[in-house]
Computed example of a mutant assay.
Amino acid sequence: MADGEPRLVLATHNQGKLRELRELLRGQIPGLDVDTQVIDAAAAGAPDVPETGLTFAENSLLKARAVAEATGLVAVADDSGLAVDVLGGAPGIFSARWAGKHGDDEANLRLLLAQLADIAPEHRGAAFVCAASMVSPRLEAVEEGRLAGVLLTEPRGSGGFGYDPILQPDGMDRSCAELQPEEKNAISHRGQAFRALLPHLVAALR
């Protein structure tokens, strides 16, 4: 296989997720150049895949299967979101479009904070949840991760993306958006799910 030829495609157009996956994989798979051989859906010419599943795992697998079929590459996908205790697990699979427009982080944050404005600190428990899938011609796998914490009343920090500025992980005094990338990757829901997926990726990319 030619040097730099893509080997793994992440089924997303979200550059934040691509950066996180590259950092998680860096040095983990012998011979894999994460900066040139791990690409996103746009670079692979893969289609957008509707998230029609009812769970994070279903949506993740739908995307990975479709992108693997379209590109012929090993495909990785995740579906992740924020599950708020007092909202019965919502926004959940609707996290990225909670305010109505997919990917409008600021609107999603503001709407959620407004909905929780009268909720006391002791009842503001929430967790980031992630299901990560890998599909290759020989293998399929799904792994999950969870990062529990409490929701702040205002965004804090400029790192990360999505709801990172308002979730403060349990045992910490900073929001996810105030953590350094390596700190976040060490504890994040996505980091947990992708680390659990790593042995399957190693097997698929041999």
Rank of each mutant, 00 (worst) to 15 (best):
P199M: 10
A99I: 14
R124W: 06
I39E: 02
L25Q: 02
V34N: 03
H189A: 08
H13Q: 14
A131W: 03
A41K: 05
A114E: 15
P6L: 08
N185I: 01
F194V: 14
F161I: 05
W98N: 09
E23K: 13
G27I: 11
L24R: 01
G72H: 06
R97I: 10
L54K: 15
E69I: 01
L167A: 04
L111H: 08
L197S: 09
P30C: 01
R206N: 13
R110T: 14
D164F: 02
E51S: 11
F161P: 11
I187D: 00
L87Y: 04
D79L: 07
R195P: 11
G100S: 12
L198T: 12
E5V: 13
A177S: 03
R22K: 12
A117C: 09
L147D: 01
V135Q: 02
Q115Y: 04
D35N: 13
A131D: 07
P137M: 09
D164H: 02
H200Q: 11
L116K: 10
L62D: 11
A77S: 15
G81N: 07
P6I: 10
V135T: 06
N185C: 01
Q15C: 07
L82A: 04
A126Y: 02
P137Q: 10
G171Y: 05
F56A: 08
E69A: 15
S158E: 15
D173Q: 12
Q180F: 00
A204R: 05
V49E: 12
Q28T: 15
G72C: 11
E144A: 13
V9M: 10
E140I: 06
G145M: 03
V150C: 12
V142A: 08
G159Q: 00
D105R: 04
A141D: 14
D173E: 15
R97T: 09
G125T: 14
D33M: 02
A196H: 12
V202S: 08
D164V: 02
G89T: 05
R65A: 12
D3S: 14
Q28L: 05
Q15G: 12
A177I: 00
F194T: 05
A117L: 07
M172T: 06
A196G: 12
C130L: 05
G145Q: 06
F56G: 08
L10R: 04
A186V: 01
I119P: 05
D104R: 11
D79V: 04
D79S: 08
R124K: 09
Y163F: 14
G16I: 04
L201Q: 00
L54A: 15
L54I: 11
S133Y: 03
S133H: 07
L152M: 12
L8S: 04
R138T: 14
M134H: 09
S136E: 06
V129W: 01
V86N: 05
P91A: 03
V84R: 00
G171F: 05
L82C: 07
L8W: 03
G157E: 01
L111K: 15
G92Q: 06
R65K: 15
L109P: 09
Q192C: 11
T52C: 13
L25C: 07
Y163I: 02
I39N: 03
P199L: 12
A193K: 04
G4E: 07
R190W: 03
S136G: 15
A177C: 04
R124I: 10
L197C: 11
E23C: 04
